[in-house]
Nucleic acid binder design. Structure first.
Length: 407
RNA sequence: GGCCCGGUAGUCUAGUUGGCCAAGGACGCCGCCCUCUCAAGGCGGAGAUCACGGGUUCGAAUCCCGUCCGGGCUACCA
């Protein structure tokens, strides 16, 4: 979250007026509430074993009724620590308003009594979250749609706790994979850090994520966090799940990469180059990065694409297969190229280009025919940043040496 | 099984009060242009019976009913 530039006003790390913020430090509070609810008749102690509960559930399903956990509890043996189960009144319909889904009604006649405190004294999600929401005076509950079905039970708990006011609820659509299965932090490849390591920019990530389930208007794709905040409205959030599409994320990422200054890009690239073994974290390396950055900016969708493109600036490349092929029978020509470059007055892109084009003209070579062998000799590949600029950055001596060693 | 929610092109979406939608934008895809490669950029194109079937209406993606499909909940998971 910090990488994304998202921050929070209260929390275990920075404190705040409603602490403690770690559930394990609030266990006493949960236990107090659970016992209070028992005393007031909203819940009961349950000594049933999990087998008892399981059996009742099966039976209830086969009979088409809701499980009667209370009846089972009354028959259960009395030894051991009990769990505490909350009583769900069967003859009610719970209705609440959701900012994104609208009005939702649930017939509680189908909702079984549920455990709020486990036999080991720890609270279930249902109790903990409700106690916390009340104690911390939470005004807006915005969460994933997967938690929507738990809302009526939480509302019931609030009532039993004697809380009159109801927070604003908003259930956001889930993000799903390309097969439509919900992404989950429990099964997933999905931690933001993974995207950072894959070469995505935080601003691109934020922009893309905002587009999942929401849109600024009918045509804007690129916007800053500030613009999103200014325009955001829960009522315009979509109800249906959205598939995570890395390809579109890449397009957005490319956009933000292009928007960077060479200095910024060079800075961002350092760790990725170092990870690939390039000596980028030195004064010389950083200077090299700063000079190539302008050539890279419009050729990248992810920062991880940079190292392979600029490796030739840091070390002598071993030509790949295609480069090797392009170098066949080019010895004489490459020699002429070297000679032409040798006599250039100033080693600049413009002069390098002029010299190479003149040579191509003289030999009646199409540009592609003329330049690809040079590219292969110098960069070891057929795909690289623009050639003349690359040669300028590489320097005359190194360029000439590579040309000659390719002969 | 029961309860709840959802369903516009491969994908993200516009569409909230029915007519301006024989459905708009974007990613991706295809083609052309530019061009030293790859990109970026420009231009153009294909791609949606608005899940399906009924109904209401002069008129429905938008309202109603049913069906199908997907997901969530139905846990002493969260």
């Amino acid at each position: 979250m910090q990488w994304l530039g998202l921050d929070w006003d209260e929390g275990p790390d920075i404190g705040g007026p409603y602490g403690p913020y770690r559930q394990s430090e609030r266990f006493d509070l949960y236990r107090e509430w659970a016992h209070k609810l028992v005393e007031e008749g909203f819940a009961y102690e349950d000594h049933s074993t999990s087998e008892d509960v399981e059996r009742e559930r099966e039976l209830a399903r086969s009979e088409g009724r809701r499980p009667d956990h209370r009846a089972v509890a009354e028959r259960a043996a009395r030894d051991g620590q009990p769990s505490i189960r909350f009583i769900v009144p069967p003859d009610r319909t719970m209705t609440f308003h959701d900012e994104v889904l609208g009005d939702i009604s649930t017939d509680l006649g189908r909702t079984p009594d549920f455990v709020i405190l486990r036999a080991d004294g720890t609270p279930t999600y249902m109790l903990a979250v409700t106690v916390d929401d009340v104690a911390m005076e939470i005004s807006h509950i915005v969460r994933g749609n997967d938690l929507m079905a738990s809302t009526p039970r939480q509302l019931l708990l609030r009532e039993a706790m004697g809380v009159k006011d109801v927070p604003v609820f908003a259930h956001l659509p889930l993000i799903v994979d390309d097969k439509g299965k919900p992404l989950s932090k429990r099964w997933g490849d999905v931690s933001v850090a993974a995207y950072r390591d894959q070469g995505f920019l935080p601003e691109a990530m934020l922009n893309y994520l905002a587009l999942l389930g929401w849109s600024l208007d009918d045509h804007t794709n690129i916007f800053s966090m500030d613009e999103a905040i200014a325009a955001f409205d829960l009522a315009r959030v979509n109800k249906n799940p959205a598939a995570f599409d890395v390809t579109k994320l890449e397009w957005i990422n490319g956009h933000y990469i292009r928007a960077k200054t060479p200095e910024e890009l060079a800075h961002d690239l350092v760790p990725f180059c170092v990870a690939e073994g390039l000596a980028a974290d030195t004064d010389e390396g950083r200077a090299t990065l700063a000079t190539v950055a302008p050539l890279l900016t419009e050729r990248m969708k992810r920062l991880t694409e940079a190292p392979p493109m600029i490796r030739f600036l840091f070390e002598r490349p071993a030509p790949d297969d295609k480069a090797l092929k392009a170098l066949e029978n080019q010895a004489e020509y490459l020699g002429a190229v070297a000679t032409a470059l040798e006599t250039i007055e100033k080693w600049t892109t413009a002069e390098i280009e002029a010299a190479l084009r003149a040579l191509a003209e003289e030999r009646d070579l199409k540009p592609k025919k003329a330049f690809q062998p040079v590219r292969a000799a110098v960069t070891g590949t057929l795909v690289s940043p623009p050639l003349f600029e690359s040669l300028e950055i590489l320097g005359r001596d190194e360029t000439l040496e590579r040309l000659r060693s390719a002969i």
